[in-house]
Computed example of a mutant assay.
Amino acid sequence: MEVIITNEESIGQLVADDITNLLRRTPDAVLGLATGSSPLRIYDALAEGVSRGELSLARARGFTLDEYVGLPEGHPCRYRTVIDEDFTSRVDIDPAAIHAPDGNAPDLDAACLRYEEAISAAGGVDLQILGIGTDGHIAFNEPGSSLASRTRVKTLTEQTRRDNARFFDGDLDAVPMHCLTQGLGTIMQARHVVLVATGSGKAEAVHHMVEGAVSALWPATILQHHPHVTVLVDDAAASRLQLADYYRYTRAHRHLVQ
Rank of each mutant, 00 (worst) to 15 (best):
I42F: 02
P39C: 04
G12S: 07
E8P: 09
E9L: 08
V15D: 05
I11A: 01
E9V: 12
P39L: 04
V50W: 01
N7I: 09
D44R: 03
E8Y: 09
Y43K: 02
A45M: 12
N21R: 14
L14P: 04
L33A: 11
P27V: 05
L23M: 09
D17G: 09
G32W: 10
P39K: 03
T35Y: 13
V30A: 14
S37P: 06
L40W: 12
L22W: 01
L22R: 04
V3M: 00
N21K: 14
L40C: 11
T20V: 12
L14C: 06
E9F: 08
L22K: 00
E54G: 07
I5H: 02
T26V: 05
A45Y: 10
S56Q: 11
R24V: 04
N21Y: 13
S37K: 14
I11F: 01
A16C: 02
D44T: 05
D17L: 08
L57A: 10
I19C: 03
T20L: 11
L40Y: 13
P27K: 02
D28E: 07
D17Y: 08
A29K: 01
E8F: 09
I19T: 03
S37Y: 10
S51R: 15
Y43V: 01
I11Y: 02
R41A: 11
R25L: 15
L14Y: 07
R52Y: 05
I19D: 07
T20P: 06
T26Y: 01
T20E: 14
L14T: 12
N7L: 09
E48W: 08
G12V: 02
A16Y: 01
L40M: 15
S38Y: 05
S38V: 05
L55N: 04
L23I: 08
L40G: 10
A34E: 13
D28N: 14
L14D: 08
I42A: 04
S56H: 09
L22I: 02
S10I: 03
D44A: 03
D17R: 10
R52L: 10
G49A: 13
Q13A: 15
S56T: 15
A29H: 01
S51Q: 15
V30L: 13
D44N: 07
A34F: 14
S37E: 14
Q13I: 14
A47Y: 04
A47N: 02
T20N: 08
E48V: 08
T26K: 14
G12T: 08
D17S: 11
R25E: 14
R25G: 15
G12Q: 06
A34K: 11
T35H: 14
A45I: 12
T26G: 00
G49F: 11
T20W: 10
R52I: 02
A58K: 07
R24G: 06
I5G: 00
T35W: 13
V30Y: 13
V15S: 08
L46I: 10
I42Y: 05
I19H: 05
L23S: 05
I5N: 01
S38C: 09
A47T: 06
S51T: 13
Y43P: 01
S56L: 13
D18S: 15
A29C: 00
T6K: 01
S51V: 11
D17E: 15
L23P: 06
S37M: 13
I42C: 09
A47Q: 03
E9T: 10
A58R: 11
D28M: 02
